[in-house]
Every structure is written in structure tokens, then in C-alpha cells.
Amino acid sequence: MVQRGSKVRILRPESYWFQDVGTVASVDQSGIKYPVIVRFEKVNYSGINTNNFAEDELVEVEA
């Protein structure tokens, strides 16, 4: 279970941040499909630095 402030590695192959490390900004408990919002240092092609992920697409590298 990841929690706010954890450092996580992204396992979603189609993601711009695949294999990159980001910080968990928040975790939604309402039961949505992609409840974990992760914030990154670098921006993607659209200038965005956050994205939603499912918990099984993340691996915690640092608490």
C-alpha cells in the first residue's frame, strides 16, 4: 500500500514516465480505477508533471 509522500517507480509501459521515480501526491479511497496521483520532476510533452496510476502499476522504492 503506497501512501502520500512515498517514492514510487512506474511500471506502466505506455506511460511517459515508465521506469521513472515520482512522489505520491495523494491516494483516493473512493474506489476509482486509478486512485494514486504521482508527481514527477520532469514534465511530459504537454507540460504536465502529474498523472494517475493504479496501485499495481507502482512499486515503492522509498517510504
Rank of each mutant, 00 (worst) to 15 (best):
49 N>P: 02
10 I>P: 04
26 S>A: 13
57 E>N: 00
56 D>I: 08
28 D>A: 09
55 E>W: 15
5 G>F: 03
23 T>I: 13
33 K>V: 06
48 I>W: 09
56 D>A: 08
45 Y>I: 12
16 Y>E: 06
10 I>K: 03
54 A>H: 07
50 T>W: 15
50 T>R: 05
38 V>L: 01
54 A>F: 04
32 I>H: 10
58 L>A: 01
51 N>H: 13
44 N>Q: 07
30 S>G: 10
56 D>H: 14
39 R>L: 11
37 I>Q: 14
30 S>I: 04
22 G>M: 05
54 A>C: 07
11 L>R: 04
46 S>P: 05
41 E>S: 08
57 E>I: 03
52 N>R: 13
14 E>W: 13
16 Y>Q: 03
57 E>Y: 05
36 V>H: 00
1 M>C: 14
36 V>K: 00
22 G>E: 03
31 G>I: 11
11 L>F: 03
5 G>N: 03
59 V>P: 00
56 D>K: 06
36 V>Q: 00
20 D>N: 09
30 S>F: 06
60 E>F: 11
26 S>R: 11
24 V>H: 01
47 G>P: 03
19 Q>P: 02
23 T>Y: 08
61 V>A: 06
63 A>V: 12
2 V>C: 12
14 E>Q: 10
22 G>L: 08
55 E>C: 14
7 K>L: 14
54 A>K: 09
59 V>Y: 08
63 A>T: 13
51 N>V: 10
21 V>F: 06
51 N>R: 03
61 V>K: 03
52 N>C: 14
49 N>H: 07
45 Y>R: 13
43 V>F: 15
24 V>A: 01
16 Y>P: 06
55 E>F: 15
29 Q>N: 12
9 R>V: 09
53 F>G: 00
43 V>C: 14
9 R>L: 12
3 Q>V: 12
22 G>Y: 08
2 V>Y: 14
10 I>C: 10
34 Y>R: 09
14 E>D: 14
6 S>V: 09
19 Q>K: 10
48 I>L: 13
7 K>E: 05
49 N>S: 09
59 V>E: 15
32 I>Q: 10
23 T>S: 04
48 I>P: 03
18 F>H: 05
42 K>Q: 09
33 K>I: 07
25 A>R: 05
5 G>D: 04
5 G>E: 04
19 Q>M: 15
14 E>R: 08
2 V>G: 03
52 N>E: 08
5 G>R: 05
37 I>N: 12
49 N>F: 08
17 W>P: 01
26 S>D: 14
31 G>V: 08
21 V>Y: 07
62 E>R: 10
6 S>I: 07
56 D>N: 12
42 K>Y: 07
7 K>F: 09
12 R>F: 05
34 Y>F: 12
33 K>H: 06
35 P>T: 09
22 G>V: 04
19 Q>L: 14
56 D>M: 07
24 V>P: 01
23 T>K: 04
28 D>S: 09
17 W>L: 02
11 L>T: 07
14 E>M: 08
50 T>S: 10
32 I>C: 12
3 Q>W: 04
34 Y>M: 07
25 A>Q: 15
21 V>K: 03
51 N>F: 11
61 V>P: 03
14 E>T: 14
42 K>G: 05
24 V>N: 02
48 I>Q: 15
4 R>T: 13
37 I>E: 15
34 Y>H: 09
48 I>C: 15
59 V>I: 12
10 I>L: 05
24 V>E: 01
48 I>V: 13
46 S>R: 11
1 M>R: 15
45 Y>Q: 15
18 F>Q: 01
16 Y>I: 03
15 S>Y: 04
41 E>R: 08
11 L>E: 06
8 V>D: 05
20 D>S: 10
6 S>H: 07
38 V>C: 05
56 D>G: 06
20 D>Q: 13
59 V>K: 09
41 E>Y: 06
40 F>D: 00
13 P>G: 05
2 V>D: 05
60 E>V: 15
41 E>T: 10
40 F>C: 04
3 Q>Y: 06
13 P>M: 12
46 S>T: 09
40 F>A: 00
53 F>C: 03
60 E>H: 10
24 V>F: 07
60 E>Q: 13
46 S>N: 14
36 V>R: 00
41 E>C: 12
29 Q>D: 12
6 S>A: 13
17 W>I: 02
53 F>E: 00
57 E>G: 04
39 R>T: 11
49 N>E: 03
37 I>R: 14
44 N>A: 05
44 N>H: 12
18 F>A: 02
33 K>F: 06
24 V>S: 00
41 E>G: 06
8 V>I: 02
26 S>V: 06
18 F>V: 03
47 G>T: 01
28 D>C: 12
43 V>I: 08
10 I>Q: 02
48 I>T: 10
9 R>S: 06
35 P>D: 04
62 E>C: 13
20 D>W: 08
32 I>K: 10
38 V>P: 01
27 V>P: 00
31 G>W: 07
61 V>R: 02
61 V>H: 02
40 F>L: 00
4 R>K: 14
37 I>V: 14
39 R>W: 13
26 S>Q: 09
56 D>V: 07
60 E>S: 10
37 I>K: 15
31 G>Y: 09
56 D>Q: 06
23 T>L: 08
60 E>I: 15
2 V>P: 10
22 G>D: 01
42 K>L: 06
32 I>N: 10
61 V>M: 07
58 L>G: 01
27 V>M: 06
36 V>N: 02
13 P>H: 08
6 S>N: 07
4 R>A: 14
52 N>I: 06
38 V>I: 03
63 A>I: 11
20 D>I: 09
56 D>Y: 14
1 M>L: 12
27 V>W: 07
49 N>C: 14
54 A>P: 00
23 T>M: 09
50 T>Y: 14
58 L>R: 01
47 G>Y: 05
36 V>D: 00
16 Y>R: 01
61 V>F: 05
51 N>L: 06
10 I>T: 02
9 R>A: 05
13 P>C: 10
6 S>L: 06
41 E>V: 08
31 G>A: 11
48 I>E: 15
2 V>A: 04
48 I>K: 12
35 P>N: 13
13 P>N: 06
55 E>D: 07
59 V>H: 08
4 R>G: 06
34 Y>D: 02
31 G>M: 09
52 N>D: 07
30 S>R: 09
40 F>G: 00
27 V>F: 11
17 W>V: 00
46 S>E: 15
35 P>E: 07
57 E>V: 03
4 R>S: 10
15 S>P: 01
32 I>W: 07
51 N>P: 01
37 I>H: 11
33 K>M: 10
30 S>Q: 06
12 R>N: 09
11 L>Q: 05
63 A>Q: 12
51 N>T: 10
34 Y>S: 03
28 D>Q: 08
1 M>I: 11
3 Q>F: 06
26 S>K: 10
49 N>Q: 07
